[in-house]
Design a protein around this nucleic acid. Sequence first.
DNA 1: TTCGGCCTCCTCCCCAGGTAGGAGGCAGCG
DNA 2: CGCTGCCTCCTACCTGGGGAGGAGGCCGAA
Lengths: 222, 222
Amino acid sequence: MTIRVLVADDQSMVRAGFRMLLSGEPDIDVVAEASNGLEAIDKAARFDPTVVLMDIRMPDLDGLEATRRILAADPDARVLILTTFDLDEYVYEALRAGASGFVLKDDPPEQLLAAIRTVAAGDALLSPTITKRVIEQFTRIPRPAPPKELEELTGREREILRLVAGGLSNAEIAEELTISETTVKTHVTHILHKLHLRDRVQAVVLAHQTGLFEASARPPAV
Amino acid sequence: MTIRVLVADDQSMVRAGFRMLLSGEPDIDVVAEASNGLEAIDKAARFDPTVVLMDIRMPDLDGLEATRRILAADPDARVLILTTFDLDEYVYEALRAGASGFVLKDDPPEQLLAAIRTVAAGDALLSPTITKRVIEQFTRIPRPAPPKELEELTGREREILRLVAGGLSNAEIAEELTISETTVKTHVTHILHKLHLRDRVQAVVLAHQTGLFEASARPPAV
DNA sequence: TTCGGCCTCCTCCCCAGGTAGGAGGCAGCG
DNA sequence: CGCTGCCTCCTACCTGGGGAGGAGGCCGAA
């Protein structure tokens, strides 16, 4: 099964470069090109590529917004962001927009190919320099002292609170912990009562002010 | 310049496997082995390896604590964490402990080799499946990296956002600013769209993480 | 003057989230 | 043994919040 690629970049030289690079790979086909965001959305819909290689800086509509819209239309679409600059803000933006990966145009060709295959396989990938920064972001932590009332929470409740503080909905939390949404609601209700809070929004505020969120950001449980 | 590797894993078969795998690489030498955390710390100090391949589950002292201590002794040390299960909830803890990367033992050999070289070069790396999870975690949560969109907010919108971040309901905000609740809703809707957020909960998370919520610290009444 | 951005307010509609109340399973403890 | 706390899940109900869409007034820039 060949990997169908859409190349979206406003510079024709870059597109040509990718065509050239990818033409040497038997398992990868470039099925379309786009020179701006709007075109990318259109072609993505019409050619249904396995992977969209997306530049960020493009006329008409930038790659980030284009990514958002493509993902909105087809949540299963995979977008691999290409960029020349390794500016942080774009990374976070891109990830939040739903991109599956982020590579630099001057990464070595084998890395680019590997990235395309990785993303096509449904995994995610960041180029190493980017990974490093993401990890650094992720890692730095403050930690004040928690109010004693927090201690009245059971282990499970604290776990739930952490996820609530991460901005997750009850449904997402349920999926995360593989329990029913009803159960999540029960826990949330108990948390609110114990902490004398009105709604989850206040719980988020409290969690962040006590540093509980940063202190214990937890991974998804697959 | 060859890459000097220390392999720390309690299973001798795993150590042997790595010796075998790495012996085929001219630029990589296994200079020492350790079968538990304490030994790993000791050998790391004595052999000064370029990269430490570290298992998490080990007797005496687990890989996370060993990583912390090695990093404490030598901040430039590079530790690449190995794990068997990709459900390992220790990913984040490992990163926080200062590990440079995280790979699965059953990743394809080329990936493992690439990981070692990447880490040796001073970059960071997560295996694709792990990256995917980190990203998922990362994306549903509005993240730091002050989104430039924050600047696109009008003065009024920012004012509203601050109050939202304080845990106030729309009605309370309306009263606070002596405008109608409808107007507040309109502003909130605009804020969410501009920042690409789903609901006010995520807005609160974002506001707190970007430090936007400084002055008007009005915690939810205990 | 016209145009666009901002602030204000409205209606109609839907759903996620919170409340109330109950219930079964399980483990630890006196 | 029975009691208690925790986790799990359920139904039924109501409301706050968010989406969509429209609208009028004010002000500064072109």
